Simulated scan of single mutants.
Amino acid sequence: MIRKIGLLSVLCFTMIAIGCSNGINTTLSNKPVSIMEKENPPEEFVPITLNVVGIGDSLTKGVGDNMDEGGYLGRVSELLKQNDTIKDINLTNYGVKGHKTTNLLKKLEEEEVASSLKEADLIFMTIGGNDIMNVVKQNILSLDFKPFREEQINYVRNFNEIVDTIRSYNPDVKIVYSGLYNPFKFLLPELTEIDNIVSEWNLSSSEILANDSNSLYVPVEDIFANATDNKLLDKEDEFHPNGIGYSLMADRIYEALTEEQDDLLEKSDE
């Protein structure tokens, strides 16, 4: 008797299940189907490729880098690649050993350079050290403040024109300028006046860039300021940074960039 009741229960349950199943199928067949399109992820989550351009003198060129890692520019590029929003770096380096501000102005007129600057997302620049060196060479026997102050007028004019030229090519690109350090700190330690000259020229550069809404001045003078810091210079010329010196510059530049990461680490809208 119990087995019959149990079997009857199973049959009833099965019939009910089949009935329900038929009902569900009928309902589903008459229900309109809606396919929702997925929204694209926010732009900040999509890895981008940055166009990075270096202009200026031997520091941007990477002269003295005994580790052969591209000077500060190569190292900053590698640091940028570690950011999750950056997929890759297209790096173009127009740094030239010995270039002064006058040389850079002519360089900016070249069609290839102008084209690269127009497409750039970040521009790194070093310039001015050879302008100071030129004054030293011409007045080595009677150095005083006067020739440096006279040349500073030319330097400020040229620096302004450099920034204006870049802006004429690319109004929105970020310009990152690394300031001057005293290249004669250990080579000619008796010329203590140059410390003051370098500081004055750096002040002029920083003031010019402060008037440009999308420029960044990065001071590096203090990195090479102490007597023990001669170990940060190339052994052959005691003028250019060595690999360690360039690494410290790159760290300083990258830190300055990340402080403004909301604007700097996202590619400009095309």
Rank of each mutant, 00 (worst) to 15 (best):
D251A: 09
D263K: 15
Q261A: 14
V218W: 02
D234R: 06
K231T: 00
D229C: 02
D234E: 09
Y246E: 04
K235D: 05
L264P: 01
L264A: 08
P241A: 07
L248K: 12
L216I: 13
D222G: 08
E260M: 10
I223S: 02
Q261S: 15
I223R: 00
D263M: 12
M249S: 01
L264G: 08
E236M: 11
E255L: 06
H240R: 06
Q261V: 09
T228G: 12
L257D: 00
Y254V: 00
I223D: 01
F224L: 10
Y254M: 04
A225R: 13
E259M: 12
V220L: 13
E260P: 07
Y217C: 09
A225F: 15
E221N: 15
A250W: 03
P241I: 04
V220T: 12
G243A: 05
N230F: 07
K231L: 01
D251C: 02
E236F: 10
K235L: 06
G245P: 01
L233P: 04
M249Q: 05
D263N: 15
L264W: 14
T228V: 12
L265I: 14
D234Y: 13
D229H: 05
L216R: 04
Y217E: 09
S215F: 09
E266T: 14
L216C: 12
D229M: 04
Q261C: 09
Y246R: 02
V218I: 15
G243T: 06
A225H: 13
A256K: 05
D237S: 10
Q261G: 06
E238D: 11
L257G: 00
R252T: 07
F224D: 05
T228S: 15
P219W: 08
P241Q: 02
N230V: 08
L232G: 07
L257I: 01
N242E: 03
D262C: 08
E266F: 15
E260G: 13
S247M: 04
D237M: 07
D234M: 09
L233F: 02
L233D: 02
E266S: 14
E266I: 14
L265F: 13
D262M: 11
D237F: 01
D234T: 03
L233M: 11
F224N: 07
D251W: 01
E236L: 14
P219H: 09
N230H: 10
Y246W: 06
S215W: 08
D263T: 14
Q261H: 13
Y217G: 06
G243Y: 05
E259A: 09
F224Y: 12
E259T: 11
Y246D: 03
S247H: 06
E260T: 13
H240K: 04
